[in-house]
Nucleic acid binder design. Sequence first.
DNA 1: AACGCATAAGTAAGAC
DNA 2: GTCTTACTTATGCGTT
Lengths: 85, 85, 85, 85
Amino acid sequence: MAVEDSVAADQLIAIIERVERLESEKDALTEDVKQVYSQAKGEGFDTKIIRKIVAIRKQDAHERMEEAALMELYMVSIGMVEGIE
Amino acid sequence: MAVEDSVAADQLIAIIERVERLESEKDALTEDVKQVYSQAKGEGFDTKIIRKIVAIRKQDAHERMEEAALMELYMVSIGMVEGIE
Amino acid sequence: MAVEDSVAADQLIAIIERVERLESEKDALTEDVKQVYSQAKGEGFDTKIIRKIVAIRKQDAHERMEEAALMELYMVSIGMVEGIE
Amino acid sequence: MAVEDSVAADQLIAIIERVERLESEKDALTEDVKQVYSQAKGEGFDTKIIRKIVAIRKQDAHERMEEAALMELYMVSIGMVEGIE
DNA sequence: AACGCATAAGTAAGAC
DNA sequence: GTCTTACTTATGCGTT
């Protein structure tokens, strides 16, 4: 009905605007990252290498998490079966 | 030479840390967006549709028209829709 | 016990290798798709549009209508498009 | 013009069908993978762990590639500047 | 200005 | 049934 619908519409608008606000903040940060690289380039650094380093550091962190997760899985697994004979 | 190298190394570390700081802030915002959608879902909204609406709003109107026109052209040519003879 | 364990280990290796084999075949097909698009691009087609057409054809007609209806409802409610009064 | 257009349309249809063929083959392989896991589960294996192992093996391969790429980058970099003094 | 790469979004599957 | 995780797709960015 009309009143409830308009409430839903208001909620919907609020949701969309909240998302758009957050995404515009993300865009600003993306811009900042670009500026950092741009400045680095101006100071003579090879940004391609730096990007690679950042990527690898991120990947290392991720892999560590994966390993921890796997280890936990194994532990749970052992606990569950209490030692297969 | 040694002094200049260590300066460069310090700069390099600073650059990497600045990038990583910015990207972690971006990750936090991504998390916030997810939460907004999660909450919206809990309120009974179809988040898939909302995502599409956000994407459409983001897309420039002009570009959207161009793309729609080209898409229709292609679809007519393969017989998916009927073109005006 | 030792014998059963080694049987299980053999099975496990077989499973992993079967999965990896299948996934590498999938990768090859993904590569083929990329090549088709690349070639299409070289012949002057707009691959972005073709990808959209493929996606639409994949989507079931009924599902497509439902989604479009819901999307319009949402868009009307936030005033992006005009609804019938 | 008419003739060229129909040629383009034929090409377009061919492209779309080639893509759809390849993707259906991919879907079949995805189905096969699911069956392998399903069967493994039936034999008492913990598929979650197996999935994790497969993911980590894949990641390891990827990381090795990344490292090789980084090493090459460094070598190129050294070659370019011919030793910063 | 086009090309490939890398990140980011969206979608779909699987676990609990 | 929900919730997360993994894969696929798409956009944008840097490079040549």
